[in-house]
Design a protein around this nucleic acid. Structure first.
Lengths: 232, 232
DNA sequence: GTGCCTTTGTGAAGCAATGCACAAAGTCGA
DNA sequence: TCGACTTTGTGCATTGCTTCACAAAGGCAC
């Protein structure tokens, strides 16, 4: 059995840490805009909404970029986190499914500001194909493979109805894409080596509802039975 | 030191479990539509994309609803999970910010199908106020407090620009709301007892970019220095 | 009934993430 | 140069989640 020995510069960054790096980056960018030169872990943690020990441990996974007694250089840390996240390069993104959500995504400014460039908008509906959205012309979904290959698309956003999501998913994987952001309310089946991240509005609401219900009836346990008339 | 003794019907369901219940529910609904009467943990786990031991442990937190040798009754389990999540009641949701994203959310069918009813659409822009979207007329953001109180809104979705999100957040909390779904790219500061869930498209893309970069340059460590010409 | 087969529910082990607390490393004023 | 002060980086204990593996429970055929 092989056990990894943690190195001084261990490249295995915990998932939980990776998920928080963009948060730190955003807070740092805000500080940079306001002209802040250095920041302590305490202040940055506050801005990012985490505890300072966690922040320091997270950053320590990237390297030793702080100065004791002073804190972190804002610009330098922005650069290091950006590099670690791969934002110093340009990522071509294609959005498949140009309904309400797809349009919202295409118009969302937050993409371009980081290294993400929308390289294609595709839809299967002939009525939508040809529309101009956020400076791009919507192409037919038949072009999916060729768009991916010609424009070097490496990340695909699926914003189609649930029924076509798996099919789109299979096609983009066959075309060589290994990073997918899925907005369709389905669990996508993908081979090993393909990363899927899921954003599901309905699930988030359901989680909120659970906690809201908890708050409402704090202690009392409700009836655990079937409603009247339902036979088991 | 007081240690909680786990009860047979312990009400403290782990967060990780709560987050997966909607997934199980969706898989079960699909099975119910296809007329499946009972399902084993193995099959349900497959449909939900988790491992079967985890599924069983998750369900065991709700109670003992399976039958050994047979599996789970689909309808019964749907009911129990729905009840646990609080979906057997009706939740009034208000959406603040009717830009591209707000519109997409308003038109998203997935809400109504569960117990979520959109009870209000609000925006600060006079050009948008009065528009009819998904059967509702957009009201002015000034009406926020009155809409929340009159219509019993208990969950608010914030889909405003980042700059106004905290202000909206403060107002809805003052109006008594304790569950917020935030799409604005900011960390909202809220008092204890208020639940905020965050959906951030840009963060998801950044996480994907990290893994994509990892895959691209598998082993070789890149230069760790500043780019040429940058002075520390 | 009885015995075999399937599947659940759950202890227990393993693993990952969190948070504490402090030594080490640096700054800065005198 | 020195000493006081600040803040990082990290070892360690703790908590929470996941996974394994199996006894217990129930169905079903005969």
């Amino acid at each position: 059995m092989i056990r990894r020995i943690p190195q001084a510069r261990d490249r295995g960054i915990p998932d939980a840490t990776v998920a928080r790096l963009p948060l730190y980056l955003r807070a740092l960018n805000g500080m940079a805009e306001r002209g802040t030169a250095t920041v302590s872990s305490e202040d940055l943690a506050l801005a990012a909404g985490v505890n300072s020990a966690k922040l320091r441990k997270d950053l320590s996974h990237l390297g030793s970029y702080g100065t004791r007694g002073v804190g972190y250089d804002v610009q330098y840390l922005i650069y290091q986190i950006s590099r670690e996240l791969g934002l110093t390069q340009d990522w071509a993104v294609a959005i498949v499914g140009v309904g309400n959500l797809g349009r919202a995504l295409a118009n969302y400014g937050g993409f371009a500001s980081r290294g993400f460039r929308i390289a294609g908008l595709l839809d299967a509906d002939p009525h939508v194909v040809g529309d101009r959205i956020a400076g791009l012309v919507v192409e037919h979904a038949d072009e999916l493979e060729s768009v991916i290959k010609k424009r070097g698309v490496s990340i695909v956003v699926i914003a189609t109805p649930a029924t076509s999501a798996q099919q789109v998913c299979d096609r983009v994987i066959a075309a060589g894409v290994t990073s997918i952001l899925n907005f369709a309310p389905v669990v996508l089946a993908v081979p090993d080596g393909v990363d899927v991240r899921k954003v599901d509005l309905s699930i988030e609401l359901q989680i909120l509802a659970f906690h809201e219900q908890r708050k409402a009836n704090g202690g009392p346990i409700m009836a655990e039975e079937w409603p009247d008339g339902v036979v088991m």
